[in-house]
Lab assay of single mutants.
Amino acid sequence: EAHAAIDTFTKYLDIDEDFATVLVEEGFSTLEELAYVPMKELLEIEGLDEPTVEALRERAKNALATIAQ
């Protein structure tokens, strides 16, 4: 499951495998979680700032909209 989540994140969020791995290690496994989890939870991840989190959430929401079509 972790590998599938990493693949999904790299494909749809335009991030590298290392960043995707950090997200999975922090407990995220779906685009929905990244799109809708409280921003505070993402900001608790070391190295993430508000602009990065906002961009990540926007990419996740856009990916979900694209997949739904």
Rank of each mutant, 00 (worst) to 15 (best):
E1Q: 12
E1W: 08
E1K: 10
E1P: 11
E1H: 11
E1C: 08
A2R: 14
A2P: 09
A2C: 08
A2I: 13
A2M: 14
A2N: 12
H3R: 15
H3T: 11
H3I: 12
H3F: 10
A4R: 12
A4P: 10
A4W: 11
A4I: 11
A4L: 10
A4T: 12
A5T: 08
A5C: 05
A5W: 08
I6G: 03
D7C: 14
D7A: 14
D7K: 14
D7P: 05
T8I: 14
T8G: 04
T8N: 08
F9L: 07
F9D: 00
F9P: 00
F9I: 02
T10D: 00
T10K: 10
T10G: 03
T10W: 05
T10S: 06
T10E: 03
T10V: 15
T10A: 06
T10F: 04
T10M: 15
T10Y: 04
K11C: 06
K11L: 08
K11R: 12
K11Y: 13
K11W: 11
Y12I: 05
Y12G: 02
Y12P: 01
L13Q: 00
L13V: 02
L13K: 01
L13M: 04
L13F: 02
L13C: 03
D14E: 11
D14W: 10
D14H: 13
D14I: 07
D14A: 13
I15H: 01
I15P: 01
I15D: 01
I15F: 02
D16N: 09
D16G: 10
D16T: 13
D16Q: 07
E17V: 15
E17S: 11
E17F: 11
E17K: 14
E17N: 10
D18T: 12
D18L: 11
D18M: 12
D18F: 12
D18I: 12
D18C: 08
D18W: 14
F19P: 00
F19E: 03
F19W: 07
A20D: 01
A20Y: 02
A20V: 03
T21L: 13
T21C: 07
T21V: 08
T21K: 15
T21Y: 13
T21Q: 11
T21A: 13
T21N: 09
T21D: 03
V22L: 15
V22R: 15
V22K: 15
L23K: 01
L23V: 01
L23Y: 01
V24G: 01
V24M: 07
V24L: 08
V24A: 07
V24H: 06
E25F: 13
E25G: 12
E25K: 15
E26K: 15
E26Y: 15
E26Q: 15
E26G: 15
E26H: 15
E26V: 14
E26L: 15
G27M: 02
G27W: 03
G27Y: 03
G27H: 03
G27I: 01
G27T: 01
F28Y: 13
F28A: 01
F28K: 01
F28P: 01
F28H: 03
F28R: 01
F28Q: 01
F28M: 03
F28T: 01
S29Q: 10
S29E: 07
S29A: 09
S29V: 10
S29K: 13
S29L: 15
T30Q: 05
T30P: 00
T30S: 10
T30H: 05
T30G: 04
T30N: 06
T30D: 04
L31I: 08
L31Y: 00
L31C: 02
L31R: 00
L31N: 00
L31F: 04
L31D: 00
E32H: 09
E32I: 08
E33K: 11
E33M: 13
E33D: 11
E33I: 13
E33P: 00
L34Q: 00
L34V: 09
L34M: 05
L34N: 00
L34F: 06
A35R: 03
A35G: 03
A35F: 07
A35K: 02
A35T: 06
A35P: 02
Y36E: 08
Y36S: 13
Y36M: 11
Y36G: 08
Y36I: 09
V37C: 11
V37G: 14
V37N: 10
P38H: 08
P38S: 12
P38F: 07
P38Q: 08
M39D: 05
M39W: 06
K40N: 12
K40E: 12
K40R: 12
K40T: 11
K40G: 10
E41F: 14
E41S: 10
E41Q: 14
E41M: 13
L42D: 02
L42M: 08
L42T: 03
L42I: 07
L42H: 03
L43C: 05
L43E: 03
L43G: 04
L43M: 10
E44C: 08
E44I: 12
E44K: 15
E44N: 13
E44Q: 15
I45H: 04
I45M: 05
I45G: 02
E46I: 14
E46M: 12
G47N: 06
L48S: 02
L48I: 10
L48M: 13
L48F: 09
D49Y: 04
D49F: 05
D49W: 04
E50W: 12
E50R: 14
E50P: 10
E50N: 07
E50C: 07
P51G: 11
P51N: 11
T52Q: 09
T52K: 09
T52I: 09
T52M: 12
V53D: 00
V53T: 05
V53Y: 06
V53R: 04
V53C: 08
V53F: 07
V53L: 10
V53G: 11
V53W: 14
E54K: 15
E54S: 14
E54V: 15
E54Q: 13
E54D: 07
A55K: 12
A55N: 09
A55E: 08
A55I: 10
L56W: 04
L56A: 01
L56Y: 01
L56Q: 00
L56K: 00
L56I: 09
L56S: 00
R57T: 05
R57D: 00
R57C: 04
R57H: 05
E58G: 07
E58W: 09
E58C: 12
E58P: 01
R59M: 09
R59G: 05
R59P: 00
R59D: 03
R59E: 03
R59S: 07
R59F: 04
A60I: 07
A60R: 01
A60C: 04
A60V: 08
K61R: 13
K61H: 07
K61P: 01
N62R: 15
N62S: 12
N62I: 14
N62Q: 14
N62W: 09
N62G: 09
A63I: 07
A63Y: 05
A63R: 04
A63D: 01
A63H: 04
A63M: 05
L64E: 01
L64V: 05
L64M: 07
L64I: 10
L64H: 02
A65S: 09
A65F: 08
A65V: 12
A65K: 11
A65Q: 10
A65H: 10
T66G: 08
T66Y: 12
T66Q: 13
T66V: 13
T66M: 14
T66A: 13
T66S: 10
I67Y: 04
I67G: 06
I67T: 05
I67S: 05
I67W: 04
A68H: 13
A68V: 08
A68N: 11
A68T: 09
A68P: 06
A68F: 06
Q69C: 08
Q69E: 11
